[in-house]
Structure formats: C-alpha cells, structure tokens
Computed example of a mutant assay.
Amino acid sequence: MLIHPLPDPIAFSLGPVSVHWYGLMYLVAFVQFLLLGRARIRQPHIGAAGWKAEDLDDMLFYGVLGVVVGGRLGEVLFYNPAYYFSHPLEIFAVWKGGMSFHGGFLGVMIAMALWARKRGRAFWEVMDFIAPLVPLGYAAGRIGNFINAELPGRVADASLPWAMIWPNVDNLPRHPSPFYQALVDGVLLFIVLWLYARKARPVMAVSGVFALGYGCARFFTEYFRTPDYVVSIGPVSISAGQMLSLPMVALGLVLLLVAYKNKGAIRAN
C-alpha cells in the first residue's frame, strides 16, 4: 500500500528565510497565468478585442491580491472560524496552507471588477478572458496541499491500487483526494474551457462554463475528500465544499442562459 511521504514543507532556505513548497506552487500558478494569457492573446478573436500582453502584468497584480486575501478569508470564515478567531495570528500564516478556492473566487471577482473599472472594460468580458487561465493554477495549489499533507481523502478500499496511508492522520487506506481535485477540478476543467474558449462566444458564456464546470467537478470530487464539516439540508447531508459549490453551479447556469439568450450580441472574449 502507498504511504504518504510527508515531505518537508520547506523547499529551501535562504539564510533566515524559508521558502515553502506551498508558496512555490502559487508561484507556479501565477507564472502559468502569464504564459497561458499570452497564448490566449494570440487567438484571433482575443487579439481583435484589444487585449495586450501588458494587460496581463497589471491584471496579475490585482489577481494575486484577490486570490491571497479572498482565499485566506474564505478559509477563516467558511471552514475554521472558531480556530482562527482563537488564534488570530495564524490568519496571516498563509505559508502553512489553508486557502479556500471559493473565497479566492470571490476575491478575484472583486479584484477584476476594480481592474475592469480602471481600464474601462466590461466586467464579464474580463472574467471571460481569465476563466481558462485559472484551472491549472488551481491544480498547482492542490499539489501544494498534498505536499503539506492537507485535505486527506476519505477511507478507501484497501484493494484500490493507489489507496494511501496518511501517517499524520491514521493507518487507514485513503483516497489521495488532492490529486483527484487537481486532475478533475483542475486539468480536466482546463481542457474543456480552453477548447470552448478558442472561438468567440457570447459575453458571460465562458465564465458560465467555468462556474458550472467547477461547481459540478468540485461537488463530485468532494465525495472522495474528508469533509471539513457536514451540512444537513433536510434528509440530505453534504460537505462544506459541496455546499459552497452549489451557488457556483447556479451562477454558471444563469450566466449561460443569459449569454445564449443574447447571443446575437457576440463579443470577442
């Protein structure tokens, strides 16, 4: 049976400064944002809409703030408020892990609204542009979670070839759920979005596919991850991650309905 290697979370040290693998995964996410963004700008319908490489650098600055602030506040408020309110200094220890995607999503929406206002662009055109650039960054973050031995999976059948013991949890075989989420919520969603966004779509459509796709993918992969806590809706019990994914599914459906209702007004996005 596989055993989680529990690697040192510190990748290397420079004097008194320790660089954590989790932080490096976020650096990977931001670099791929720039590289994919440049590739996206070379698509004819994107270039025709006036997108330039210089936009990416400025947008990344806003996006990093949205991801870090929103992701951390989401972790604090959505998942572990009691712990963080009892240990307020831990709120700032982002290098230890603990970032909520749903919180980061809201943070990025706010950041992009500010950037769009600054540049005089429509908010949903901006969101349509960046949507395909997000999933691979998310996948990198999940790899960081695995290195930190965070987000252990639910107990699995010992016959599962990739069932894994997490020594920091117990001696039971578990699903390596961060890899599931990296592959399904990240890589698979990226492929779908990238292919869909290669052609001009109605405004809000690419954002709609992202929200719907991520919400459905995350709802599915949560079945393999140990829930942070369980929410009961009548006779049905779902995890916190599934509960937070339902609004994204609803948002995605609404955006797609509105986008294709007004598809006569297709813009390059």
Score class of each variant (00 low, 15 high):
Asp57His: 12
Asp58Ser: 14
Asp58Glu: 15
Met59Trp: 04
Met59Leu: 15
Leu60Val: 11
Leu60Gln: 11
Leu60Cys: 07
Leu60Ile: 14
Phe61Pro: 01
Tyr62Gly: 01
Tyr62Asp: 02
Tyr62Val: 04
Tyr62Gln: 05
Gly63Trp: 03
Val64Thr: 04
Val64Leu: 02
Val64Gly: 03
Leu65Glu: 01
Leu65Cys: 02
Gly66Phe: 02
Gly66Gln: 00
Gly66Trp: 05
Val67Asn: 00
Val68His: 00
Val69Phe: 03
Val69Cys: 03
Gly70Val: 09
Gly70Arg: 02
Gly71Lys: 06
Gly71Trp: 08
Gly71Met: 08
Arg72Lys: 14
Arg72Val: 07
Arg72Ser: 13
Arg72Glu: 08
Leu73Ser: 06
Leu73Thr: 09
Gly74Trp: 09
Gly74Gln: 07
Glu75Tyr: 11
Glu75Gln: 15
Val76Ser: 14
Val76Asp: 14
Val76Arg: 08
Leu77Ala: 15
Leu77Val: 15
Phe78Thr: 03
Phe78Ile: 11
Tyr79Lys: 10
Pro81Gln: 01
Pro81Gly: 03
Ala82Tyr: 01
Ala82Lys: 06
Ala82Glu: 09
Tyr83Ser: 00
Tyr83Gly: 00
Tyr83Cys: 03
Tyr83Arg: 01
Tyr83Phe: 13
Tyr83Gln: 00
Tyr83Ala: 02
Tyr83Lys: 01
Tyr84His: 04
Phe85Ala: 02
Phe85Met: 07
Ser86Thr: 07
Ser86Gly: 10
Pro88Ser: 05
Pro88Ile: 03
Pro88Gln: 14
Pro88Asn: 12
Pro88Arg: 13
Leu89Asn: 09
Leu89Cys: 02
Leu89Ser: 07
Glu90Met: 12
Glu90His: 12
Ile91Pro: 02
Phe92Gln: 01
Ala93Leu: 14
Ala93Tyr: 13
Val94Glu: 04
Val94Tyr: 08
Trp95Ser: 05
Trp95Asn: 04
Trp95Lys: 09
Lys96Asp: 07
Lys96Gln: 14
Lys96Cys: 04
Lys96Pro: 01
Lys96Trp: 04
Gly97Arg: 08
Gly97Asp: 10
Gly97Gln: 11
Gly98Thr: 07
Gly98Asn: 11
Gly98Val: 05
Gly98Lys: 07
Met99Asn: 05
Met99Val: 07
Ser100Gly: 10
Ser100Asn: 10
Phe101Met: 10
Phe101Ser: 10
His102Cys: 10
His102Gln: 12
Gly104Thr: 08
Gly104Arg: 05
Gly104Glu: 12
Gly104Trp: 08
Leu106Phe: 11
Leu106Arg: 07
Leu106His: 07
Gly107Asp: 12
Val108Met: 06
Val108Pro: 07
Met109Arg: 05
Ile110Leu: 15
Ile110Lys: 05
Ile110Arg: 06
Ile110Thr: 11
Ala111Ile: 06
Met112His: 06
Met112Gly: 00
Met112Val: 12
Met112Thr: 10
Ala113Ser: 11
Ala113Lys: 08
Ala113Asp: 10
Ala113Ile: 04
Leu114Ala: 15
Leu114Ile: 15
Leu114Val: 13
Trp115Lys: 09
Trp115Val: 12
Ala116Phe: 10
Ala116Ile: 08
Arg119Ile: 13
Arg119Gly: 11
Arg119Leu: 07
Arg119Phe: 11
Arg119Ala: 12
